[in-house]
């Protein structure tokens, strides 16, 4: 059974008043992570094919082709872990949109 740690290399609390959280996906898992996120979250817009602005439930976040993501307004580790679990570990056959592999 997979868990969030299978995809995530590290999580950095970026310094700055924005309190952004940067999630860095493991290099060999980043394509799978981004594919899962694209399957589950809604793409609002892409900029230069590099920044992908996504929404999921009440969250808006940005995913980068390099295999990183920036989340905002995250209260604590548990909230982030729950969100990442929902994005990365969802049941592919149930509630998410048809798979749209990340390129």
């Amino acid at each position: 059974m997979k868990n969030v740690d299978d995809f995530v290399a590290r999580i950095e609390g970026a310094c700055g008043a924005e309190k952004d959280v940067i999630v860095v996906f493991k290099f060999d898992k980043k394509d799978e992570a981004l594919t899962n996120i694209f399957r589950c979250a809604q793409l609002k817009r892409s900029i230069a094919g590099i920044i992908h602005e996504m929404t999921f439930k009440d969250y808006t976040f940005r995913v980068y082709s390099s295999g990183k993501a920036i989340f905002r307004s995250i209260k604590d580790k548990k909230e982030l872990n729950d969100l990442l679990s929902a994005l990365l570990l969802q049941d592919q056959n149930s509630r998410c949109a048809p798979a749209r592999p990340f390129r």
């Binding site: 700055g16 924005e18 940067i22 230069a48 920044i51 980068y64 390099s66 990183k68 920036i70």
Partner: peptide
């Protein structure tokens, strides 16, 4: 944000 700018350049 500054972090977005940094990640964008990082690409």
């Amino acid at each position: 944000s500054s972090h977005d700018a940094a990640l964008f350049c990082d690409n």
